[in-house]
Simulated scan of single mutants.
Amino acid sequence: MSEVHILDEIVLQPDNIATVLQMLEDQYLPGLPSRHTLSLSRRWVSPPVQLEGQANTLWLLWEVVDVMGYYTMRGTAGPEVAAFWEAVDKLCLQRRRHVMTDAGKPLARPLEAP
Rank of each mutant, 00 (worst) to 15 (best):
V64D: 06
V49D: 10
T19H: 03
E3P: 00
P48H: 09
V88L: 04
A87D: 08
Q54W: 09
A87K: 11
A55K: 04
A18V: 01
G53S: 00
P114V: 07
L93M: 12
L38D: 13
R96A: 12
L12V: 03
Q13L: 05
L51D: 02
N56M: 04
K90A: 15
A103Y: 05
E86Q: 13
D89E: 14
M23I: 00
G78A: 07
R35T: 07
V11K: 07
L32K: 07
A108Q: 12
V81E: 13
P14S: 03
Q27K: 10
I10G: 00
V20N: 00
Q54M: 11
L21G: 02
Y70E: 14
G69C: 07
N56K: 01
A83F: 01
G69Q: 07
V67E: 13
M68E: 15
D89A: 14
R109H: 15
E112A: 11
V65Y: 06
L91S: 02
K90V: 11
A87I: 03
E112T: 12
L111W: 10
E112W: 10
E63W: 04
D8L: 10
E9L: 13
L24E: 01
V45A: 06
T57R: 09
V99H: 02
A83C: 01
L38T: 10
T101G: 13
Q54E: 14
A55E: 04
R95C: 05
P47G: 01
S41L: 12
S41P: 03
V64I: 15
G53C: 00
P79H: 08
L24I: 01
T76Y: 12
W85H: 03
A108R: 09
E63R: 15
N56I: 01
W59L: 14
Y28F: 13
P106L: 10
L32I: 11
P48K: 07
A77I: 02
T101I: 09
Y71R: 14
A82G: 06
L61A: 10
E86V: 04
D26N: 11
E112M: 12
E80W: 09
Q50A: 15
Y71W: 15
R95V: 06
L12K: 01
R97P: 05
